[in-house]
Structures are given as structure tokens and as C-alpha cells.
């Protein structure tokens, strides 16, 4: 289990805020920090990695203290068992994919670890290429593989998928979940994409103005407590149109659009881009497998 409490004042685009949080993540879980940009999400990861020093803070992982400002002790980033995937991937441009991974090897570590990761992350075709020649999704896979070479206890992912298109994102979410389970990692992900954290996380921390305002499993955090709906999705409003006496609200849920009929009262405080919950209580949804046409 990793537990940490951090206090640091930040200068952001929206003025000065104080980051003041404490979190616990049980071993083997995948937790997400959710929040708008400028809320201090990346700062938390950088403090955990030891790249930034908080004014006050305490970090322990499985009983090992990484940082304790009370007695002035702190481990250097090099001594912390972390894998960090940066937002811009930070691959070394002067090394091939394989050399990027080999650079991360510790002294006397078996090179087999590299071959295994190349296989798991499906990098066989790319291992002799230089980072500048790779697409965003490929760079992402290399960065993830490189972060895992040292077999870290804690994996930190800084908005790893924000720059990718939806198909690539889904595929990489699978990759992340796969290695998270395979290597029994404790993973902390930063994201501002609700569908992503619903799909991936065991636990969500909602960060606003430097404070955690909600935490728990994604459904408990993002659902409307008054609705006991069993049929429920979270999406984004993409259009509101008036048709005769009612309104039709188009909601982007994942990568499909759902049209929902709403009254004037419902749409009054809705605007484009709002995150909404679409649910139904009165009837039972029916689920049916879609049979693919048989190829001749």
C-alpha cells in the first residue's frame, strides 16, 4: 500500500492554490486522479517520483518511507521504485527503441526482461527504430515498456492517452490494464477523461483547487446518488435541439451518440460540453449479442 500526504503551494494559470491532500492506495489497485487542468494533478505525480519537493509531506510505500519532511528525510528519485510515463513520453531521441529499454536496466539485471516487455507491448517490429520516427501510440507503448524495465512497485502515468485518437486509446487502455495485472503493480493515473477512468480504475480521487473533494470507486463518485438506475452511462453533451415541444439532447457516450428527449426544464441548466449521466429506471434493458454475418 502507498499512502501519502502532501502540502505545497502552486502558481497556476488560475492564481495561487495550495495543494493539500492525503491519499491511500492499496497494493495492486489502479487509482486515478481526476481533475481539470491546472488542478495540480501532475504536481502530485512529480512529488511522488521525487522530482519536486513539497513544503510538507510524507510518503510511505509498504512500510518504506520515501519522504518525511518532518525529519528532513527523503529518497532521491533514483532510489524510489517507480516507473514514470511522462505526458510527452520523454523517450531518448539518440537511442533506438531497444536501447531506450536497455538504458533502464539495472546493473547485473538480466536482459531477458527486455525481450519479454518487447513481446508484451508488441514492439517486435519497432525495436530498431528511433523515437522520432514513431507515431504517438507507438511512443506511448515504448514509454510504458521502458517504465516497467526496473519492475517498479509504483507506476505513475501522467495523462498518457490524452494525445491519442479513440481507437488507439482503447487499445492502450487494454495494454495498461494488462501490464498492471501482469506485473502486480500499484498504479496511479492522471486523467481528465471520465470514460477512461470508468473503464480502468478501482478508485478515483477528484481533485479541485488543490483539494480532494471526493474519492471512491468510479460509480460511487460520478453517479447521481438520487438515481437508483441500473441502466446508467456518463457522457458529454454535444448538441441540444428544440423539436416541437420537446428538446433532443445528443450525448456522446464513449464513441457513440445517444439522443435523449428532455423537457425545457431539463435543458435549462445544460450547456454544450457538460458531463451528464444518462439513466433509466422504469424498464429493464435487454442485452443481446450481435451476430456477425458469416463470411463465405
Amino acid at each position: 500500500m502507498i499512502s501519502f500526504s502532501i502540502c505545497k503551494s502552486l502558481q497556476t494559470a488560475h492564481g495561487n492554490i495550495t495543494l493539500d491532500i492525503s491519499c491511500e492506495i492499496p497494493s495492486g489497485q489502479l487509482a486515478t486522479i481526476y481533475g481539470a487542468s491546472g488542478a495540480g494533478k501532475t504536481t502530485i505525480l512529480r512529488i511522488l517520483a521525487g522530482l519536486l519537493q513539497p513544503e510538507k509531506g510524507h510518503i510511505t510505500l509498504d512500510g518504506n518511507t520515501w519522504l518525511d519532511t518532518a525529519n528532513g528525510s527523503g529518497l532521491l528519485p533514483q532510489k524510489r521504485s517507480i516507473g514514470f510515463v511522462f505526458q510527452d513520453y520523454a523517450l531518448f531521441p539518440n537511442m533506438t527503441v531497444r536501447k531506450n529499454l536497455e538504458y533502464a536496466l539495472e546493473k547485473r539485471q538480466d536482459k531477458k526482461a527486455i525481450d519479454e516487455l518487447i513481446e508484451v507491448m508488441e514492439l517486435q517490429e519497432l525495436h530498431n527504430r528511433y523515437p522520432d520516427t514513431l507515431s504517438g501510440g507507438q511512443k506511448q507503448r515504448v514509454a510504458l515498456a521502458r517504465a516497467l524495465v526496473r519492475k517498479p512497485q509504483l507506476l505513475l502515468l501522467d495523462e498518457p492517452l490524452s494525445a491519442l485518437d479513440i481507437d488507439m486509446r482503447l487499445k492502450l487502455q487494454d495494454h495498461i490494464l494488462q501490464v498492471h495485472k501482469h506485473y502486480k503493480l500499484t498504479t496511479l493515473l492522471v486523467s481528465h477523461d471520465i470514460s477512461e477512468l470508468f473503464r480502468m480504475s478501482d478508485k478515483v480521487f477528484v481533485l479541485e483547487q488543490g483539494k480532494i473533494i471526493k474519492e471512491g470507486p468510479p460509480f460511487a463518485v460520478f453517479s447521481n446518488p438520487q438515481a437508483s438506475g441500473k441502466f446508467q452511462f456518463t457522457g458529454e453533451v454535444v448538441s441540444i435541439e428544440k423539436e416541437d415541444v420537446v428538446y433532443v439532447v445528443s450525448v456522446l457516450i464513449y464513441n457513440s451518440i445517444a439522443k435523449v428527449v428532455a423537457t425545457a426544464g431539463d435543458v435549462q441548466n445544460l450547456k454544450l460540453g457538460d458531463t451528464v449521466s444518462v439513466f433509466s429506471k422504469a424498464f429493464n434493458p435487454i442485452i443481446r449479442k450481435i451476430e456477425m454475418p458469416i463470411k463465405k
Binding site: 522530482l51 517507480i82 520523454a90 531521441p93 539518440n94 538504458y103 521502458r146
Partner: peptide, 29 residues
Amino acid sequence: LSPGLKEASFSLGKGRMETLFKVTLPNIK
């Protein structure tokens, strides 16, 4: 040079000297 390169090297357990000679300097050749 992206400051991330240096930090990535630190997060991979490498010290300042190794980072300088294997990451920083080769990338500003």
C-alpha cells in the same frame, strides 16, 4: 532540450553523471 529527458533518466534510476554523458550530451551533439 525537453527537461523531461533528464527527469526520465532519473526516474529510471540513473545518476547525474550517467544522465549527462548518455542522455544530455548525445542529444545536443
